[in-house]
Write a protein that binds this DNA or RNA. Structure first.
Lengths: 140, 140
DNA sequence: TTGCGTGCAAAGGTTTTGCATGGCA
DNA sequence: TGCCATGCAAAACCTTTGCACGCAA
C-alpha cells in the first residue's frame, strides 16, 4: 500500500508564529518586528524560519502580505478564516492601516467586466483595494 | 546682487532617461530594465544616475513610482500630462507575472461605487488586481 | 569658475538559498 | 525511520551613500 506522507509537520515555531499573528487582531507587522518579538520572549526562532512560514501562510490565505508605499520591506497581517474571503472585497486604508471586509454584489460586476472586456480572471482572495477610509478622509 | 544659480543642469543622461520613459508610452519598467536598455544601446549611464533621475522625476510628478505587492523592486512609469487625469488599472497575472496596464472607463464606476456605497476613496495608483491573464488561463 | 551631475565602488538593508542538524509523525 | 523543518551563514538582490572627477552654464 501507498504510505501516506503528511504535507507538512506541526511544529512549535509554526504554531508560535501563527499564534502571534492572530494575537495582533488584524494589525500588520514586519518580519523584523516578528523576529524581535520572539527574541524578547526568549523563544528562539530563526528569521529564515519566519520567512518560510510567512510565505506558506500567505499562500494558504491565512495571512496577507502587503508592500506599503514608501517602504521596501513587507508587512504581514492575519486574516480571520471564519469569513469566506472569496465572496467580498478587501479595502485597505493607507492611512490607518485597517482592513475592511465588504460584502457587496458589485463584486460580480467587476469580475464580469474584467473577464469579458479584458480576458482577465480576477482573484479576489489576493486583490486588495487601497485607499482612504471614512474615518481618515481629510476634512470630514 | 544675488547671483542666480540654476536649480539643475541639463545633461545627456537626464535627457536619455526621460526620453526612454516617454517612448514607452505609459508601460512600466524597473530600474534594471532601464539600465539594461542603455547597456544594449551602448549608452553608458550608471545605475546610480538612473536611480537619482528617477527620484527627481518622481518628485516632479513627471513619472510615477509603484511598489507592487509580491515584488521587491519598484516600477516606474511615464505620466503624460496631457492625458494625466486618466488613471488606469493594474492587472497582475499571478502565473506569468506580467503587469497589464489598462485604460478603461469602468474605472469611474468602481471609484464611484466605493465612494458612494462604502465611503471609501480608492487609490487606483496603488491598487492592483491579481488574477490570471488570457495567456495563462488553463484550457485556452 | 562654480557647483551640480556622474559613475565607480562600497555600504546598507531585506529576502533567499545551501547545507548539516533537529524533530514530528 | 523517513522526511520535513530549522537555523546558521552566506549569497543574492535592490537601493543608497561616499567621493573624486566631469561637465553645463
Amino acid at each position: 500500500m501507498v504510505h501516506k506522507r503528511p504535507a507538512s509537520y506541526h511544529t512549535r515555531q509554526g504554531q508560535c508564529i501563527l499564534d502571534y499573528l492572530k494575537s495582533l487582531g488584524g494589525s500588520h507587522v514586519t518580519v523584523n518586528q516578528i523576529v524581535r518579538h520572539f527574541e524578547d520572549a526568549e523563544e528562539v526562532i530563526g528569521q529564515t524560519t519566519v520567512y518560510r512560514h510567512l510565505e506558506k501562510l500567505t499562500a494558504q490565505g491565512k495571512i496577507r502580505k502587503y508592500v506599503l508605499n514608501a517602504d521596501r520591506n513587507a508587512c504581514y497581517q492575519y486574516v480571520d478564516n471564519a469569513v469566506n474571503c472569496r465572496d467580498h472585497f478587501h479595502l485597505k486604508c493607507e492611512i490607518c492601516g485597517s482592513l475592511i471586509h465588504v460584502d457587496c454584489d458589485f463584486l460580480d460586476e467587476i469580475e464580469g467586466h474584467f473577464r469579458s472586456e479584458h480576458d482577465f480572471q480576477i482573484n479576489m482572495l489576493k486583490t486588495v483595494f487601497y485607499g482612504t477610509c471614512k474615518q481618515c478622509v481629510p476634512g470630514s
